[in-house]
Design a protein around this nucleic acid. Sequence first.
DNA 1: ATATGATATATCTAATAATTTAAATATTTA
DNA 2: TAAATATTTAAATTATTAGATATATCATAT
Lengths: 131, 131
Amino acid sequence: MLESLKALGDLHRQNILRLLADREMGACEIIQAIGLSQPAIAHHLKILKQAGLISGEKEGKIVFYNLNKDGLKELLKQIDGFLNDLSCFSCSLPKPSPLRQNPNLCAEMGFDPDVCAKMTEEETCSKRKRR
Amino acid sequence: MLESLKALGDLHRQNILRLLADREMGACEIIQAIGLSQPAIAHHLKILKQAGLISGEKEGKIVFYNLNKDGLKELLKQIDGFLNDLSCFSCSLPKPSPLRQNPNLCAEMGFDPDVCAKMTEEETCSKRKRR
DNA sequence: ATATGATATATCTAATAATTTAAATATTTA
DNA sequence: TAAATATTTAAATTATTAGATATATCATAT
């Protein structure tokens, strides 16, 4: 998901996706439409492809690019899971920090290593135990 | 949305959000939990705050950070709109490129400026006319 | 009250790392 | 051989980071 979010976090790449939302396009068309150099477009297309957001099929000289709808759907599911999981949108007031009780001891406080030690790219909060 | 996606596209910032999913935290707690320098954390917190994903309220010496659930909800809505809009998840086979008919003329092809000329950060495909 | 010192956070600055880009080159296909 | 795309390389830009410094708050001593 991190890779896909990085792929989405660039305006040119968003615009490539917007172009492909209308129809498939050959790379040369995308180059003209976006107005960057051919290698720059090739680079962005590679990033989008590696993120699973588009597909490219070579047909003769031309590589036709399309949205990967399954990839987009999967990404949306992941983001939805991540964000929902984070904010648990409906539930519960935020728990107060122990610093509220103990405002002088920030430097001395320890941390539950479970909370953060092994957080990885794809892990979401629901996989951690809540207290 | 671009700004928020960039904010999400960093593992440390994702982990800060994961931490805050459990409870509010003082900045000093976040520093210890993530293990970066104080200025680096301050920088990431600023980016997350500017993206509307967290809030910080100062209470004495300590700034307590919380998830901004409304911001997260709003972002999810935008991403959902963007991705759904792109792939129009249920509908229609992809339209073929005109290059399918005309495979020799990539360099000479013109482009409908409506399709791409004024694409901006927040514009989604549904706002463009479809053909 | 006022000064002093300690703590928490933010900002500034500079170094490093990563990303983006275009020119040059390579590869594939007609 | 020419056209379309990918890869390599190098330059420019941007992002990330830590050290130094600045600001604000609180506790304590005068």
